[in-house]
């Protein structure tokens, strides 16, 4: 194998991993802070992708579609949290799984009714078409680089928000002692809504920017959900740092698996999870 293939596949792996991080971070935050297992998280990824397809079919502009679609996804997140998830905070994980699985079925049916079951593509924005020459004879798609850059910027922003701001301290405090946060005069329900809406927004955004690469198709939310659960479990439930590392590991293993052992690519990710759990049964950072 030559160096250029190695480089390109590694960059693809990192790009996929960073995208997975956007989705998995919401999943792990919602679990770590509210102790909610949200199976419908993948559905919001699908909603994001379909919104990008749907709006850009009118506007012809992906960025404008994101600008218009993201608020819709965030409002959807707020509605789901306020009217459904909020009733489940003191309930069993099984009840949560039941409700959020129900949401998957509803979202899938809605997608089928509104947008049909065809596979759609979303064009790459003109400005980001083509490739960037990495070396004299090695080009890499500009859009993929752009996706990696955006995901990385969001990851850094999220880290700063959680580690350095007062809001981040309150969110972290809420993860370890919810009652004490209210006992300091802070409306924890509002904090929860905010975290859920942020998670929904991140996932939908991931679906939107992934749409030009992965195309838009029924059930896309469910396959990404399973991979993201693998990421979250590898990283340790509730750990953002873990989700970041886990996402990169899964991204690289999946991409390289596809190249080296195509028939086992799907299994490689689970083998990685098994290996990590044998070494650290609670995940890397939990």
């Amino acid at each position: 194998m030559d160096l250029s293939l190695f480089l390109i596949q590694t960059m693809n792996g990192v790009q996929y991993g960073l995208l997975l991080f956007l989705i998995a971070s919401g999943l792990t935050l919602i679990f770590g802070i509210m102790h909610i297992i949200n199976l419908a998280h993948g559905s919001l990824y699908m909603v994001g992708a379909y919104l990008a397809f749907w709006i850009s079919s009118y506007t012809g502009n992906l960025f404008l579609s994101i600008l218009l679609g993201l608020p819709i996804a965030i409002v959807l997140g707020i509605v789901i949290e306020r009217f459904l998830i909020q009733r489940l905070y003191d309930r069993d994980h099984l009840d949560q799984v039941l409700l959020t699985f129900g949401l998957i079925l509803i979202f899938d049916a809605m997608q089928s009714i509104i947008w049909g079951n065809d596979v759609h593509g979303v064009p790459i924005p003109d400005a980001l078409r083509g490739g960037i020459m990495l070396t004299e004879n090695l080009a890499y798609p500009t859009y993929r680089l752009f996706v990696s850059g955006v995901c990385l910027a969001i990851a850094v922003g999220m880290f700063l928000l959680i580690q350095k701001t007062r809001l981040g301290m309150i969110v972290r405090g809420g993860a370890s002692n919810r009652e004490m946060v209210s006992a300091l005069g802070i409306n924890i329900r509002w904090v929860y809504t905010l975290v859920f809406a942020a998670g929904a927004g991140l996932t939908a955004f991931a679906g939107m920017i992934a749409a030009p690469i992965s195309s838009v198709y029924p059930g896309m939310g469910n396959s990404i959900l399973i991979i993201c659960f693998v990421v979250v479990v590898i990283g340790g439930l509730g750990s953002i740092k873990g989700a970041f590392l886990g996402a990169l590991m899964v991204g690289l293993v999946y991409t390289w698996g596809t190249v080296l052992v195509p028939q086992f690519a799907g299994a490689a990710v689970y083998a990685l999870m098994a290996a990590v759990l044998l070494w650290k049964p609670r995940g890397l950072f939990a």
């Binding site: 007062r166 301290m169 309150i170 972290r172 405090g173 993860a175 370890s176 002692n177 009652e179 005069g185």
Partner: peptide
């Protein structure tokens, strides 16, 4: 009612009002 995952400074700053 500690927040074990917050530092002393963070525990104080988050409560300020």
């Amino acid at each position: 009612g500690m927040f074990p995952n917050l530092s002393v400074r963070e525990s104080l700053v988050m409560a300020a009002r």
